[in-house]
Amino acid sequence: MYDARTRYVTAAVETAAPARVVTMLFDRLLLDVDRGHAALEQGDVLGGRSHLQHAQDIVAELMASLDAASWEGGPGLMAVYAYLYSTLVEAGVQGDAGKVLECRSIVEPLATTWHEAAALAAAAAPAAPAPAAAGLLGVG
Rank of each mutant, 00 (worst) to 15 (best):
L84C: 00
H115F: 06
D57I: 03
R7N: 12
A11G: 09
L110F: 07
V100N: 02
G43F: 02
A16R: 07
G140Q: 11
W114T: 00
G95Q: 01
L137C: 06
M78T: 04
A38W: 06
G73C: 01
L84E: 00
G95E: 00
A132I: 06
D34K: 01
E61W: 04
G76M: 10
A39P: 00
T112K: 15
C103L: 03
A16P: 06
V100W: 08
A82P: 01
G36Q: 02
P109D: 07
L25R: 08
Q53A: 13
V21P: 05
R5S: 14
V13P: 07
A17N: 08
G73W: 01
V13F: 15
S50F: 11
H51D: 08
V13Q: 12
A132G: 07
M63N: 00
I106Y: 05
V9T: 13
A133R: 11
R35V: 08
V89T: 09
D44K: 00
D57M: 06
Q56C: 06
V100K: 02
E14C: 01
S70G: 10
T15R: 14
A91V: 00
G138K: 09
S105R: 12
P126A: 14
L136W: 12
A91N: 04
G74Q: 11
V22P: 02
D67Y: 07
A16H: 00
A68R: 03
A69I: 02
A111S: 13
M24Y: 04
G74D: 10
V100T: 12
P75G: 07
G95S: 05
F26K: 08
G92I: 01
M24R: 06
A82T: 13
D32C: 11
A134W: 08
S65W: 04
Y81I: 08
A123E: 15
A11Y: 06
E90K: 12
G135V: 09
Y8E: 14
K99G: 08
G76C: 00
V22S: 08
D44V: 04
L29R: 06
H37F: 08
G48N: 10
E72N: 14
H37Y: 10
V100Q: 03
I58K: 03
W114K: 03
G36F: 06
A124R: 11
M78C: 01
